[in-house]
Simulated assay, not measured.
Amino acid sequence: MGWTTKDVPDLTGRTAVVTGANSGLGAETARALARAGATVVLACRDVAKGRTVAGELGDRAQVRALDLADLASVRAFAEGVRAEHERIDVLVNNAGVMAVPLRRTADGFEMQIGTNHFGHFALTALLLDRITDRVVTVSSAMHRIGRIDLDDIDWERRRYERWLAYGQSKLANLLFAYELHRRLTAAGSDVKSLAAHPGFSSTNLQYRSEAWYGKIMELTTPFLGQPPDQGALPSLYAATAPEAESGAFYGPDGPFEMRGHPKRVQSSARSRDPELARRLWELSEQLCGVSFPVS
């Protein structure tokens, strides 16, 4: 029998922040954390949906507005959380967009790299000195198709390809998680940086690509994909299991890592390139206007 939510340890007295907690994997992650006793901050672009989820969880759930596609919103959210919480035990960088048409964030970034990577990069930087245990960044098996173009990361000169842009953003998530691990370790910090991916899960992420195949995915994904509570297990394992290792990547243990229980998995050689990670980190600090309290 593999690891399930029954194996989540007692989290009484601990505080977690989960981005994108108004639906899908984020909502399931928040539910499991709250049921284990944690206070959970549901960081949501759709606050109304977040309140619906929080209503199931009682006083341990707090809903706060966060739009990762707007760095002003990221800063406002971080300031609010810092004012309310002396410590944050766990940050789960879960929210994301997938394969959307070309559009820009409030700060001019391509939407997928801006939301999936830059928004979470800035959020982590602004909260890191309050984090006591671990940062979990959610990537995807699709990171394998990703290529980081540091000279055109926002697709201003290249012909836009929505899936390649998604792959770039998910590769950036892994490069960030691994580089954060290296920097925390070098600084002598006990804080962990881990990554996870959900396999193929039935969530509304698949239905928002606005492509011709969106309706097909909407009809077939509930039958082919695993339910969200199963897809959330790798993130939950990374966020709570005492034995989960910093610098590791967790995903499902089934065929092709599409479904199953959490296990440590491998990522592409490109995701483990420390020089690429360093250069992406420096570019991200520059573009987001943040700096980390680890060198």
Rank of each mutant, 00 (worst) to 15 (best):
R45M: 00
E79G: 12
G58I: 06
T39L: 03
V74Q: 07
G108F: 07
V97P: 12
G50F: 09
A54F: 06
V40N: 08
A54T: 09
D70A: 05
R60Y: 08
V92T: 07
A65L: 08
S73M: 00
I113F: 09
R75P: 09
N94A: 03
V41A: 02
M98Y: 15
A48N: 12
A54Q: 06
V53Y: 09
G50E: 11
A95Q: 12
A54M: 01
V90W: 06
A65N: 12
A38W: 11
M98T: 03
L102D: 14
R82G: 01
R104A: 04
A54R: 07
V90Q: 01
I113P: 04
V92L: 07
D107E: 01
R51L: 06
D89A: 00
D70T: 04
N94I: 01
C44T: 03
M111Y: 10
T39D: 12
D70Q: 07
D46I: 07
N94S: 09
V81W: 08
A48F: 06
L42W: 05
A95P: 13
T52H: 14
H117W: 05
R103H: 15
G96P: 11
D107I: 07
T115W: 04
T52M: 14
Q62W: 13
F77V: 03
L71S: 05
R51Q: 14
G96Q: 08
T105L: 01
L71M: 11
R103Y: 10
L91D: 04
L66V: 04
C44L: 04
G80R: 11
L42D: 03
L68W: 05
G114F: 03
D107R: 09
L42K: 09
H117V: 02
F121K: 09
V40M: 07
L42E: 00
M111E: 10
T52F: 08
E56V: 06
V100G: 07
N116V: 04
G119H: 02
R87P: 03
D59G: 12
G50H: 12
L71E: 05
Q62E: 15
E84A: 15
H85R: 12
M98S: 14
I88N: 02
A95S: 13
A76N: 13
E86N: 03
E84T: 13
M98P: 13
V40Q: 06
F118W: 10
G108V: 00
R103P: 10
